[in-house]
Amino acid sequence: MILQHIADGLLSGAIVALGAIGLSFTMKILRFANFSHSELLTWGAYFAVIFFAVAAVIGGGYGTPIAPFSFGWPLLAALLVTAALTSLLAIALHHLVFARLNRMAGHMTMVFASFGVALLLRHLLVLIFGPAPLYYSSALQFAMLLPGGVRVMPDQVFLLGLTVVVVIALHLFLTRSRTGISMRAVAENPDLARVSGVDVGRIVMWVWIIGASCAAVAGVMYGLTVQLRPELGFSLLLPLFAAAILGGAGSLYGAVIGGLAVGLSENLSVMIIPTTYKPAVPFLMILLVLYFRPEGLFGERR
């Protein structure tokens, strides 16, 4: 039983981890807590709905599933396209709202602007797609039985693998490419980065692209395992914040370990508290981290 909870925790933690990467980077580099970040997950998931609808019209559609997964090659294309579309959405929001406010007012103004943006994005989806849940595919998927009596969905295992690939790719980007090193420099000291010749505006674009792309992937993969609802991302907002704060703002590995820790805690918590209170677990984690180690596991003390 406990093995099953651990497996479930790791699998749902992978979604949180992917979502938290972008949130953590925005908190560090753009220096504000973006309450609309979770809506990027939702929009990513719904962009994939559009992608599959278009793909169905031009033929191919959802594709022939590659056993044991519920999806075929079109899903990989969908991940790329939705990542690009979600990045465009994030960059548009940056130019329309956040960049303008940043010039005019303090960073807390950005925080409540992100409140407004979150509200807009979420309810626009209700207007466009309706409040009823949607599914990518009506095909049923059967769980795999692992040793120890643990049941997992093949799609979730794929997600875990995909998360590992994304994290390795980001690690290489941050430590090997000049853009990645510049991003870490901007996170630490924007003025010094600027006088060294780093175009901070360009780095900010990269932050949005990375954050939105990871969010889109998380959203699509989450949509694959549950039904799609306009509240999909919003329900993950506290877990994302818990992961980002636990890991420490700006830390890639912090966000990943934070995400897995949140997933595990949520799933293990049902052994001691009623399932209905599970959504409160990330909040308790946030309080504990803020009280004992506000800089997070991998953050620097301010």
């Binding site: 090193i181 870490r184 420099a185 996170a187 630490e188 000291n189 003025d191 010094l192 980065a193 600027r194 006088v195 060294s196 010749g197 780093v198 175009d199 901070v200 620097e300």
Partner: peptide, 24 residues
């Protein structure tokens, strides 16, 4: 001219404090 273009144009600046990236 923005600071990053000045840097490219041959202006180098060493601040008094925090003049290296400590985490890099």
């Amino acid at each position: 001219t923005p600071a990053h273009l000045l840097a490219a144009a041959g202006v180098a600046y060493v601040p008094q404090t925090d003049n290296v990236f400590a985490t890099l």
